[in-house]
């Protein structure tokens, strides 16, 4: 359920658009930033706010890779392996992080497509914050810096803290 602050934000977002359904993606981001993933209650609540069916909300939500329909912990680590990152070491970073955090419920490592950071390849994002020119070791250090509080992460959907 949206907190009362977020409910107010949700209504403000809806008012920006000529048609309320346009607020669907922004409201899903808001829910994910609040809850850490998109759960059934959130989809039901959003359906109510936008006068859509729950199936409409789920159908749209499930199309987009940023929306996580299961809990993903505290950090989503998105590692690019598209071609520029492929030839500069992206796959090695992905394998290293997958192995390192295999049993860690806090860190969700995923392989993603080009992040538009190819000038600084290989690249990854932690909760949609960019990190570039990495090695497997420097990537691990960055994640650990978030976990030890040396760095402040964005919310799970990339919203500011």
């Amino acid at each position: 359920m949206f907190s009362s602050d977020n409910l107010q934000r949700a209504r403000e977002i809806i008012s920006r658009y000529p048609s309320s359904r346009s607020a669907l993606l922004p409201l899903l981001h808001l829910a994910q930033d609040q809850d850490g993933w998109i759960n059934d209650e959130a989809m039901t609540e959003i359906a109510g706010l936008l006068e859509l069916t729950r199936a409409d909300v789920y159908g749209t939500c499930s199309f987009y890779t940023m929306f996580k329909l299961e809990p993903v912990g505290t950090y989503v680590v998105s590692v690019c392996t598209n071609v520029t990152c492929l030839v500069t070491g992206g796959p090695a970073i992905l394998h290293h992080l997958e192995k390192t955090y295999a049993d860690d419920p806090d860190v969700f490592v995923e392989e993603v497509e080009c992040l538009a950071a190819c000038g600084g390849a290989p690249a990854l994002q932690v909760n949609y914050e960019y990190h570039e020119r990495l090695t497997p070791q420097s990537a691990e250090q960055i994640i650990d810096a978030y976990r030890s509080g040396q760095r402040t992460a964005r919310r799970i959907s990339g919203g500011p803290r």
Binding site: S78, Y128, E129, G159
Partner: peptide, 16 residues
């Protein structure tokens, strides 16, 4: 009188 900028979702910083 109304324009929209559709920013790629992953570009959180550009959005902010």
């Amino acid at each position: 009188n109304t324009a929209f900028i559709y920013v790629r979702g992953e570009m959180a910083h550009a959005h902010d």
